[in-house]
Simulated scan of single mutants.
Amino acid sequence: MKYQTRNQLQSVGDVHADMQRPTMTSRERLARWAELLEQTPDRSLGTLPETEFQLASTRDAMRSADTPITVAFQDEVLQADGLKDDTYGEAKRFFELTDWQLHRVVCSCHLGATVRAETAARHVREASGPRPGLFARLWREIMGCAPYF
């Protein structure tokens, strides 16, 4: 295949720069992110320290090499859909997550200094589903598992 500039292509046919492919929904973005993480389930990824204790501006700028967010940012499909960098704030915006949801995916207080990609993928998938009720959340925090009744 021969590389040609936009001007060269316009001499052959109509080129419309304003045509864009449809963007993914937030659920589709989260599903893609989880799939990327699941491709290397045993990969050890870094976390971000104590995100809940940071000022919002500091938290939004937080990043570290080789985090679950970095895995998403390295994907050309997610970049083409609008993921601009691998900061906490950009992940929150792009994936349409609350601080609490993103905190569960990348914060060291839940995961330690590193997290397995498979575990991060599970948290990403949980973020894409309906939020459990208050009782279910309390049960999970106290008992460490989802209620079974």
Rank of each mutant, 00 (worst) to 15 (best):
M1V: 12
M1W: 06
K2Y: 01
Y3Q: 08
T5S: 11
T5R: 04
N7A: 15
Q10W: 00
Q10A: 11
S11Q: 13
V12I: 13
V15N: 08
H16R: 10
M19V: 07
R21C: 03
T23G: 12
T23F: 04
M24C: 04
M24A: 04
S26Q: 07
S26A: 07
E28D: 01
R29K: 10
A31M: 13
R32G: 07
W33D: 12
W33Y: 06
A34D: 07
A34P: 08
A34R: 07
E35A: 13
E35C: 09
L36V: 02
L36A: 03
L37H: 11
L37P: 04
Q39V: 09
Q39N: 11
Q39E: 14
T40R: 00
D42L: 11
D42K: 10
L45P: 06
L45R: 06
G46P: 01
G46K: 12
T47P: 05
L48Q: 01
P49S: 05
E50S: 08
E52I: 05
E52L: 14
L55M: 13
S57W: 02
R59Q: 03
R59I: 09
D60I: 00
S64R: 12
A65Q: 13
A65K: 15
A65Y: 15
D66H: 14
D66C: 11
D66T: 05
D66Q: 13
T70D: 15
V71A: 09
V71E: 11
A72E: 14
F73V: 08
D75N: 12
E76D: 09
E76H: 05
V77L: 15
A80G: 15
D81I: 06
D81A: 05
G82I: 07
D85W: 00
D85N: 14
D86P: 06
Y88K: 02
Y88C: 00
G89T: 10
G89H: 04
G89P: 07
R93Q: 08
F94G: 02
F94S: 04
F94V: 01
F94A: 02
F95Q: 10
L97P: 12
L97V: 05
T98Q: 02
D99A: 04
W100K: 14
Q101R: 15
L102N: 02
H103L: 09
H103F: 12
H103P: 01
V105G: 10
V105I: 15
V105H: 10
V105R: 10
V106T: 03
V106L: 06
C109T: 13
C109V: 09
H110Q: 08
H110E: 13
G112Y: 04
A113G: 03
T114G: 00
A117P: 09
E118C: 00
A120D: 13
R122S: 13
R122A: 15
R122E: 15
H123W: 05
H123T: 12
V124F: 06
R125C: 03
E126I: 09
A127Y: 03
A127N: 09
P130Y: 07
P132M: 00
G133W: 11
L134C: 02
F135P: 00
R137G: 02
W139L: 01
R140H: 01
R140K: 01
I142F: 06
G144T: 01
G144P: 00
G144M: 02
G144N: 00
A146N: 12
P147H: 12
P147K: 03
Y148T: 14
F149H: 13
